[in-house]
Each structure stands twice: as C-alpha cells, then as structure tokens.
Design a protein around this nucleic acid. Structure first.
Lengths: 332, 332
DNA sequence: CTGAAAGCGCTAACAA
DNA sequence: TTGTTAGCGCTTTCAG
C-alpha cells in the first residue's frame, strides 16, 4: 500500500475544517458551504489526496468492486469467449466506476468476497461449490453464459439451443441432407446445448442423425482441423458442417480448401459467435451471432442495480441471430 | 458486501478465546497452543468464517492485491497481446495468492491505488500521467512490454528491436532483396521497435530501403489484408514480408493465396508472436517467438518480491527467438 | 502462550 | 451547515 500517509486528517487541518466536512466533500454530500468546499478541494489537490479505499469499505460496509470469476478449463482463452467477456465486463465497470477483480479459478478453493460488492461468474465449470457458497453468503451475484435452473441464482444466458437449431435448420432448408457438426468442449453448457440444437433441428426436419457426423472438438483450431479431416475422410462426407465456433469454422474452411474443395460450392460451413475475424478469411463466414460483449456489459449493469437494491432477480436468455454471408449455399 | 456479519468476535466467543488468538490462527502465528488452535479452527469451520479483507488491509497497512492496468487503445484485444498478459498475470497471481484488480483505462483519470500492494502497467500508451503519479506515491510498480529510460521505473520488456532485426536478417540471408513489412499500430513502442529493427537489418545488410515496402497496419487482420493487397499491387511486389504479428501474418498469407500465389514459393512471410494459432494454417508460420505469458508471469513474481521488500529494482529485457517453420524459403 | 487495549482511515448518527 | 463521537473488523503492541 502507499507509503506516504496523507489522511483525511491532514486535509482537514490544512482546510481548517473537521474531517467530517472533508468526508462530505469526498462523498459529494450537498450540505457543505461553498467556501468550505473550495478550501477542502484545494487541500485535496495540494496533497494529491486519495481516500483509502479499504477504510472506506470498512466504514461504509459496502464496496464498489465486482469480482469476475472465470473458470480455468483447457482452452478458455483460445475461445474468443473469455476476451469478449473481460472486455464487456471491464468496459461496463469503467463506465459505472466499479473496480474489477479478476479471478481465474480451477474451482478448488472457496472465494473470499468480503471486499466485493458483487460477483459475476463467467460460466460455471467444475466450480459449482464456489457458486453455492457465494449464494449462502447472500451477496449480489449473477451467472452469465449458463442457465441454471436448480439453484436460486440470477443468470444471463444465451439461447444456444435455439441458435444451433436455427443454424442447422438453415442448412436443411438450403437442401442439405448430409450435415455434420463439430462440437465445442462438451464440459461447457453452451457446447452441449449447441449439439442438442443440432440434433433437434435434424429431428424436426426428419433428417436422419448419423453418429459419424458428430465430431467432438474443444473450441481449439487444432481440434477443428482433426475433426474436419475425419469428416472429409468418410465414405459419404457431409455437404454441410455446423461448427460450434467461428474460430473452429475458419480452420474447417482452411482444411477443406487445402483438400482442393470449394466453400461453399462443395461444402457449406456455418459457424457460431460472429467473431469479427470471420469476415476476413478467404470466404466470409455465415454464422450465428451471439452477443457476448453486450451480455457481459449488461450483467454488470444488472449487478450494479442489484447491489444498489434497485432490483432483485434476473433470469434472462439472450437471442442469437443468423448472419448470412458467403460460406453456405444450396446443395446442388 | 456480505450481508451476514460473522466477525472474528463470534469465532472467538465460540472457541472460548480472545479475538487476538483468533487473529493469530488466521495469520499462522506459531505461538498458539495446539488446543486453542484446534478450537479456533473448529469455530472457523462452523461459521464458515472468512476474515474481512478491507479490515485486514486497513489494520495491517498492506495489501495482497495487484492492479493490472491495461491501456484501452483501439485493437488491444484483437492483438493476442492482452489475452496473454492477462493469462500470465492471472496465473501467477493465483499461485502467489494475490488478488488481481484489472483496470482497462483510457489514461484519462488518475488511479487510486490505496488498496493495492503493487501495480503492473501492461504497456504505456497515452497514460504516462498515471504512471508518473504512481511513481510519486512510491508504491511497488513494474511496467511490462515497454522500455522506459527517462523515468525511474522498473520494467520488464521484450527485445523487439533485435527480434525484428533477426527476422529480417533471416530473410536477407535466404536471398531476398525485396523485403516489405507490415507494421503494428505505431502508437505502441513494440510496433515502433519492430519497424526500427526492420530498417536496421536492411541497412546492415546493405539492402536499400523502399518506402513503398513499409505498410502501416494496426495489429488487426483487417489492416493486414489491406496492406497485403497494396503490396501485391506494386509494380515490383516484394518476395518476402516481415509482418509485425502472427495474426496479421496469417491474414497476409490468406490474401496471397487468394491471389493464386504460393507461400513460401512465391512470397515468404515471417510473423511475430508465436501465436499457437500459427501452427494450424495452410502453411505453418515462421515467426519470432516472444515470451508474453512468461513475461507477465515473471512480472508478478518480481513485483511480489518488491512488495515484500526482498528486491528493489528490475530493469530487464527478454530475448525473442526465431522459430523456423514453413512460410519462408530461399529466393529463387 | 494469552488477552486488553489502542489504533488503521474513514463514515454516520447525533447534537449543536 | 458544521463538528463530536462512536464504531466498521481486524492487527499489534505490551503486559502478564
């Protein structure tokens, strides 16, 4: 902590007022005379005084800091996901003047949130214990990117099921019958849901499900490459692939082109994310847009409202949107 | 903050000891009898007691939290850089049981670090004021990815100049005479240094510098695409390109291939980063490896040492390393 | 080995 | 509009 110790008292002395008055100025309490306010402000500037946050938190019994808990599973970081979440949360925190405490966790130990005003869980993977313990402490909390029905918790998720269904239905309606999928890491709820949506769409459209057409990836480009190669090697390769992330979809397209095939002429590819990078490949990617950044930003706003007692619960699921570009075409 | 208020006092009462003894147990002070220690531990478990961090900080006058300040310039996040830094810092903080406070900043307002034990600046871009003010406060501080000679500050940088020079020299030694470069965002020191290194290498090898061969990018794939197209449209297009980031290099390769040219047969491309994604394109990328993750992780360790008074200064520059893969070949 | 008591820097009644 | 005073929950002398 800071070595020098200019405290509220020094400021008070120089301004010739009580520390209470200084405190009032700091906290923008209106009942301070103009003269005193000016004197205090001068003294603050003079000392470059900044209030001690720990003391403020202790005295007020509240905090303007939010904790962002990110599970540390293999490949979170390569998945475009973590970055968007951190950006969204960070940007909203900056706007609302909230401090942001970032916690990468393997879920093994409980969190001490005594200096936090609220907590955001960016997905829940192998760390339900932490969530449950936070819930007991009765501190404002929101889970994002995960829909949790069996716990009394606020969440803000994305409709991955419907998103995937929309994507695959789109492929079916383009005339495709042989539609494969490359999944994300199935320890995540979103990857599970996207796989579910894939199955559901086929079922509704009476397209038979082939186990060979389901390739398990883990959101890494590497896994997408392996998966795509396997799909291309099948006796009856698919004519369309639904890939669980844009990043993996880009890799799939690269592999397909390396084999001398064309996208979308020979094989259609649809992704999931709407990663801006998808615009600048050899073929611009048709994809399902999911609002990660705004989900994260909104979560902070909602959390802030809850922290201020303006709101109590939140259970919301954000929609995705089909973005049609060049990587899918009619089956011919 | 937590609504329930089990304090050290509750624990003391249940254990039948003074709060001082409880405090001793919490802080692992050895002078506590085994019986008392056990009683206290039982009570802590019973109440699921977690010490109030703000109170601890206030009483101790020190903090185990480090602030990571990330400048908010256009495109930080698309640059692989921020993610690696956050990962490295986050991972080290977890190991050392340090809290991590993340602050995305546009550099406009000063930071209140009263609840921090130390600060890491991830690059300095338009926020020197913040740095200078921190320096005045005399709080442990390290700047990473930036070499600052004119301020008495600890830094841990990367030898971008030499790295770029090595890369370009490698191209020259492969027989190339027409070597272009696509720069990163020149408001960053690293991009400037890489451009400098490019020029230096050409000079040393007596290869004339052509202004046409210097294309300004900004670390985004988009900018790389534009730049590459311009280079290919020149009357005498380059036979080799040094690109300031792997991400941009990948895009350059994509563009080159779209034009029906081959990498490295027609044009050699070398990147900078050693982004794992570079392995999985159509051509695996030759690049300069820079140790971002470990730089960040090391910064935390050094900062921790400084916070504990075990060390006082740090001025270090980490080397880069040429990683030869498939995207460069002899000029023929 | 243990506990009483004095603060850490600030806020929040309560009086004035 | 202002100041006095009593804490917030914890650590840390200092006696014992």
């Amino acid at each position: 902590m800071a070595k020098k110790k200019i405290s509220i008292e020094d400021v008070a002395r120089r301004a010739g007022v009580s520390i209470t008055t200084v405190s009032r100025v700091i906290n923008n309490v209106p009942t301070v005379s103009k003269t005193n306010r000016l004197k205090v402000e001068e003294a603050i500037r003079f000392f470059k005084f900044k209030p001690n946050i720990s003391a403020q938190q202790l005295a007020k019994g509240e905090s303007r800091a939010v904790g962002l808990i990110i599970p540390r599973y293999e490949g979170v970081y390569s998945s475009f996901y973590a970055v968007e979440i951190i950006r969204g949360v960070g940007s909203s925190c900056e706007q609302l003047k909230l401090d942001l405490l970032l916690h990468l966790t393997d879920g093994r130990e409980l969190l001490n949130v005594s200096n936090l005003g609220g907590v955001i869980f960016a997905d829940i993977i192998e760390n339900r214990q932490q969530l449950e313990s936070i819930l007991e402490e009765n501190i404002p909390c929101i889970v994002i990117n995960n829909i949790i029905k069996d716990l009394p918790v606020n969440y803000l998720g994305i409709d991955n099921l419907k998103g995937a269904k929309t994507a695959v239905t789109y492929l079916v309606e383009l005339g495709h019958k042989n539609i494969a999928t490359i999944t994300g890491s199935l320890i995540t709820q979103c990857a599970q849901q996207r796989l579910e949506g894939y199955k559901l769409a086929l079922k509704e459209k009476n397209v038979p499900l082939k186990e060979d057409y389901i390739e398990k990836g883990d959101f890494s480009r590497r896994s997408a490459r392996v998966a795509t190669l396997k799909l291309l090697d099948l006796t009856h390769p698919p004519t369309a692939i639904f890939v669980a992330s844009d990043d993996m979809a880009q890799e799939a397209i690269a592999v397909i082109m390396e084999k001398g095939l064309k996208v979308p002429k020979d094989i259609s590819v649809i992704g999931f994310d709407d990663n801006p990078a998808s615009l600048y490949g050899p073929v611009s990617l048709t994809t399902m847009r999911q609002p990660l950044f705004s989900m994260a930003a909104q979560a902070v706003k909602e959390l802030n409202a809850i922290m201020q007692g303006k709101k109590t619960t939140l259970k919301a699921i954000l929609p995705t949107e089909l973005v049609i570009r060049e990587s899918c075409s009619h089956f011919s």
